[in-house]
Design a protein around this nucleic acid. Structure first.
Lengths: 139, 139
DNA sequence: AGCTTATAGAAAATGTTTTTCTATAAGGCG
DNA sequence: CGCCTTATAGAAAAACATTTTCTATAAGCT
C-alpha cells in the first residue's frame, strides 16, 4: 500500500495528513519493522530531527482506528507494524523486528462455530529471519 | 492442570506457593477468564479481601517465566489467562473475556522455512461465546 | 524448633501514555 | 489565491500503570 492510499483513507475519516504524520508514516512503512512509540519517535528524530512523541502516539491511535496498523505484545512492550490491506498472518523476527506478511489464509472460521461466533482471528509466527540467522549481530 | 502441578512447577524453580499466591492462582484458574492485573486484584479482593496489587503483578511475572500464563493485548490493555500445558490456540470472548483452548494444531512450521527459523507461533480467535451471543448483558 | 531466604505489602520511584492548552497549518470554499 | 474553519503539533502537566525499595513475615528445608 502506498502513501496516497493511506492519505485517502485518512481523509475519508476526516483526518489530515500533515507533514509530521507523513514523515512518521514514511518511516514506518518503508522500514517493514515494528516499533514501540518511543522507538519510532527516536527513528524519525534521528532521520529528520522533527516531530514530537505525542504526534507518534496520536498517529498510532488514528492508524489503529483505520486498522492500518497491527499491535504486538512482546516482552511487555507494545509494538506496531504497518498493516497492508487484506487478511494476512505475520512472521516476526525476534532479532530485527522485521515483519513479513503471510497471505493465503485457508482457515474456515465456521469450523469453530461450536465455540461461538468468530469475529476475527490472527496468527503470528515468531522466529529468526534469514538475515538474522547465525549472525552475531542481528541486522 | 491442577494447583498441585502448578505448585511443583513453582518449587522446581525455587518459587514459593504462599497463601496469597494460592488465592490469586485459584481465582485465575477457576474463572477460565483473562484478567488485567488490576481486574484480578479486584476480583480477589472482593472474594477474600486480601492480597495486594504488587503480589498480583509479581505472580504474573513468575507465571510468565514458567509459561503458565498467556498474555493478550486487547484495546491497549494487557490481559493474562491461565495456560494449560501443551500447545494450543485460543478462542477469546470479547464480551465476558472467557478463554477456550483449542487443541489439535495441525500446523507444520516447516512450511514457512523460507521466511526464517520459526521458534513458536500462536493463533487466537476473537468473537462472542455461546453464553454472550444475543444477550443484552454479557455473562 | 530453628534457620535461611523468598515473599507480602505499603510507599516511593519510575516509566509510559494521555490530556491540556495555544499556536499553527491543512484543506475546503469562494 | 486568500480567507475561514477546524484538526493537529508540541511542550508541559496530569494521569496512569508498573516496578522498586524497604522491613516484617512466613515458607519450607534441616
Amino acid at each position: 500500500m502506498d502513501l496516497e492510499t493511506v492519505k485517502s483513507k485518512l481523509h475519508a475519516m476526516n483526518f489530515r495528513l500533515t507533514q509530521e504524520r507523513e514523515l512518521v508514516l514514511r518511516t514506518l512503512m518503508e522500514s517493514g519493522e515494528m516499533f514501540t512509540a518511543m522507538q519510532l519517535y527516536d527513528r524519525v528524530k534521528e532521520q529528520y530531527n522533527k516531530v514530537g512523541l505525542t504526534t507518534v502516539y496520536r498517529l498510532f491511535e488514528v492508524l489503529t482506528k483505520l486498522r492500518l496498523v497491527t499491535p504486538f505484545l512482546i516482552d511487555g512492550e507494545i509494538y506496531y507494524t504497518f498493516c497492508q490491506g487484506g487478511h494476512h498472518h505475520h512472521f516476526v523476527c525476534l532479532d530485527c523486528h522485521r515483519v513479513k506478511n503471510i497471505y493465503g489464509c485457508e482457515m474456515d472460521t465456521r469450523d469453530f462455530a461450536d465455540l461461538g461466533k468468530v469475529e476475527y482471528h490472527r496468527m503470528d509466527l515468531f522466529g529468526h529471519c534469514e538475515n538474522c540467522q547465525g549472525s552475531v549481530q542481528p541486522c
